[in-house]
Design a protein around this nucleic acid. Structure first.
Lengths: 168, 168
DNA sequence: AGAAAACTTGCCGTAGACGTGAAGATGACG
DNA sequence: CGTCATCTTCACGTCTACGGCAAGTTTTCT
């Protein structure tokens, strides 16, 4: 049960690709593919090139997985979301550490882009929710009709004793 | 603007594949593919084999599209949903035309199955909406922070070439 | 030490959901 | 009657998101 960790980077805990796979329920192939697509890059590599994932990397991996599996985003869409989040983080770091590393014009541009992307995403979310709600309403009505029909069909008799008489 | 309709079937309005494509935003290839996959079959064919879609067929097409695009269902999953809906329709038809064609036990069974499938679908809709709402809340907060940061960065100054007018 | 496990980089394969012509038949129009 | 727009049925091409194998290296276990 010893969790195989490599802690070469300044004492911070690092995971190997196999561990990340097990912990996230993904495959190593998927992780390499995501890296290939520029979605998540391990923060360091070992001598033979083996990947060392930090806790932050892990978080990013699970985030990608959630966006993809829970929200049904394509990897391209995931990329957009992560990019705006990255801008946000970078912006915070920059403003806290030493504001003014890159020209303010560029800063404004980045933030504006992030805002635009975010708004677009929000819009999409709203229309999607609205449509799903409409569909839900339909299904509710459908369920009402079905239940009415069932009560009209007579009392419960589905729980017969063990051996059932097969009808056709 | 003449909508090309073919009304060969007892006066009921029929659409040709191209019209269905335009009205639904799909392609003719997609419609043929769905038919090939047994998802939607035009209720009649012309002499040279051209497809005639009824209004009910159209409804089924848009339903498939919504299930697929809004809820992220695969065509296999769509098939399941449509099957239970078919049961519901059959039940209505049966009860309206001449109730009692097949044994009530079987009727009850069918209705129960439809109810179960419907409830399952509703559950999935709810969890999906819940996830999206949660994500939406995240993004809203993110947007707040981004906007705060932007106002902190100073007034609009994209004066260079005027491609700045991004406002909502 | 030496086997076994885990990792690496290729590179080709696949399933789902269509796209994209090709080649030919049909019906409407001037 | 020729042309044009649509339709038909193959049949191969494409994109996404990986799966899987090979051949080689490194790490870990005993």
């Amino acid at each position: 049960m010893t969790v195989e960790l490599s802690a070469t980077d300044a004492g911070s805990v690092m995971f190997r690709i196999g561990e990340v796979a097990k912990l996230t329920g993904l495959t190593t192939r998927t992780l390499r593919y995501w890296e290939e697509q520029g979605l998540v890059t391990p923060s360091s590599y070992g001598g033979n090139g083996d990947r060392h994932y930090s806790a932050a990397d892990m978080a990013r991996v699970t985030r990608i997985r959630d966006l993809q599996k829970l929200l049904g985003f394509s990897l391209a869409e995931v990329r957009v979301v992560l990019d705006t989040e990255t801008v946000e983080v970078l912006d915070r770091v920059r403003s806290e550490w030493h504001s003014g590393e890159l020209p303010p014009v560029r800063q404004r541009q980045l933030v504006d882009e992030a805002i635009a992307a975010n708004d677009q995403l929000l819009e999409r979310l709203d229309t999607t929710v609205a449509r799903i709600e409409a569909f839900r309403a339909e299904r509710m009505a459908s369920g009402e009709r079905l239940r009415a029909r069932r009560t009209a069909l007579g009392p419960a008799q589905g729980a017969a004793s063990g051996d059932d008489a097969r009808e056709n």
